[in-house]
């Protein structure tokens, strides 16, 4: 479907935010789903760019993505101006399950953070308690902290200590899991595979719900090409685009 660019602005080092408007099934979007965006002209780029949905504003008729400029395709995206058309497919994949009444923790790392914003909006309205831990490389990479702070308490980490606590998000998770007063029931996470793997390690045999959202290079984005698979703990292959990108901590092998 063809939508239009509403706004396209730079948020941080190589991090951009785009609002996209037009006819789209906004009411069907699950937090954690993605859209697959056609970039470039002609045969410039044959593969679409899968980018998670950061926020849906159904009433105003637009959705927001936050993307990092890493190559020619995303560079092309960053040059788009308001009212320019955008060819997208979506919403695609299976998002996070929003469970009511639980004590939930959201953990995000870098460019994995955006889909957690729509999730945080939905969770903050429905759960008993929500904590948020966000990690970035440095202060130059930080975005949307104020937005998250409006929804819940945010623990901020940077690898170089230039903002918030120095270190990785796993430090914050370990503290929470070790705290006898806090009984986390769900952990929702998106970020680098190393981060997700470390969280799965910390969870161990604990019965924790929520899930991990994976990133993988994709070709079709709809489940047909088997390009973006991951492994499950019982050695099955799953497609990140169509079976995920969100998997339960128990199911996915990280």
């Amino acid at each position: 479907m063809i939508l239009r660019v509403k706004k396209n602005l730079k948020l941080a080092d190589a991090i951009w935010q785009m609002e996209i408007e037009g006819d789209f099934p906004y009411n069907k979007v699950q937090a954690g789903q993605f859209i697959n965006i056609r970039v470039g002209q002609g045969h410039d780029h044959l593969l679409r760019r899968p980018i998670s949905i950061a926020e849906v504003r159904q009433d105003e008729g637009y959705l927001t993505i936050v993307y990092r400029v890493v190559g020619q395709g995303t560079k092309w995206l960053s040059r788009l101006e308001p009212d320019m058309p955008l060819d997208i497919l979506g919403p695609l994949g299976n998002g996070f399950t929003v469970e009511e009444g639980k004590y939930s923790l959201i953990v995000g790392g870098g460019i994995g953070i955006p889909p957690l914003y729509e999730l945080a909006k939905r969770l903050s309205a429905k759960v008993d308690r929500l904590d948020i831990i966000l990690g970035f490389r440095s202060e130059h990479d930080v975005f949307w902290i104020d937005r998250f702070k409006k929804l819940a308490s945010v623990d901020l980490f940077t690898e170089d200590g230039s903002l918030g606590t120095k270190g990785f998000v796993t430090k914050g998770i370990s503290e929470i899991l070790a705290d006898k007063e806090r009984h986390i029931e769900n952990i929702y996470a998106c970020g680098p595979i190393g981060m997700l793997s470390a969280i799965k390690g910390l969870i161990g045999k604990l019965q924790i719900g929520g899930g991990a959202s994976l990133e993988e290079r994709m070709a079709c984005g709809v489940g047909a090409c088997y390009g973006c698979t991951c492994m499950t703990t019982n050695r099955e292959s799953k497609r990140v685009c169509a079976d995920g990108p969100v998997f339960s901590w128990q199911e996915v092998d990280l």
Binding site: E216, R217, M218, A219, C225, Y226, G227, T229, C230, S237
Partner: peptide
Amino acid sequence: LGNPTPRVA
């Protein structure tokens, strides 16, 4: 199961 990822570029 196929090959390890990344398997498209």
